[in-house]
């Protein structure tokens, strides 16, 4: 398998000059590539290299980098090798190419990512609404959407009956008169 992995990496990096191969053990081959080349590399992997099964498409919000990361995971039934293709998309202007003509099920993945992260897929034909219903807020899987605040605002909490709950650290601190400086508080549990 190691040889076949080398061959795959060689072929891809020859064909796609911008593809960077990331080393991994086992049956994993991993590339990072600019987003413009995603359809091309996926087409190539499927048609020329035998990676005919699209196993997964995932999206990660790297809020601190102001980017979304898209991961395409393909599987070759003949080589028994997984290929990860990573790309980054600008978070302010999240636009991506649609690939549901390569694998039909990508349509569902893209629909969900569009709804949950707000990434537009150029040319995606699918109903706007997928999992959410009448959703007015920001795309909820984004890191800056605070689920807890939303839940507290939206759902009734049994405040009264549970109001005598105490924090263990705070209880002990009060008892001993320990003065905890503000900068240390972020390390309390």
């Amino acid at each position: 398998m190691e040889e076949r992995k080398k061959e795959i990496i060689q072929t891809i990096t020859d064909h796609f000059k911008d593809a960077v191969s990331n080393p991994y053990d086992g049956n994993r081959v991993d590339f990072t590539i600019p987003k413009q080349q995603i359809p091309a590399i996926l087409f190539y992997l499927k048609d020329e290299m035998g990676f005919n099964h699209l196993s997964h498409i995932s999206c990660i919000d790297w809020l601190e980098d102001k980017q979304f990361e898209l991961v395409y995971i393909l599987w070759s039934y003949t080589d028994r090798v997984k290929v990860f293709v990573h790309t980054r998309v600008d978070r302010e202007q999240p636009v991506m190419d649609n690939i549901d003509m390569i694998w039909r099920q990508a349509n569902t993945y893209e629909r969900e990512i569009r709804e949950m992260y707000g990434i537009r897929f150029a040319g995606l034909e699918a109903p706007e609404e997928f999992l959410l219903e009448d959703w007015q807020g920001p795309p909820p899987m984004r890191r800056d959407f605070d689920t807890y605040a939303y839940a507290m605002k939206t759902f009734w909490d049994r405040q009264e009956a549970r109001s005598n709950a105490q924090d263990v650290r705070e209880t002990i601190r009060r008892r001993t008169g320990e003065e905890l400086p503000d900068f240390a508080k972020k390390y309390s549990r």
Partner: peptide, 19 residues
């Protein structure tokens, strides 16, 4: 940072079923 589950039904029950 991210946990993303790929269900078989995710593929079967939307695009494939519709077809």
């Amino acid at each position: 940072r991210r946990v993303h589950f790929r269900g078989a039904a995710y593929v079967h029950a939307v695009t494939l079923l519709e077809d």
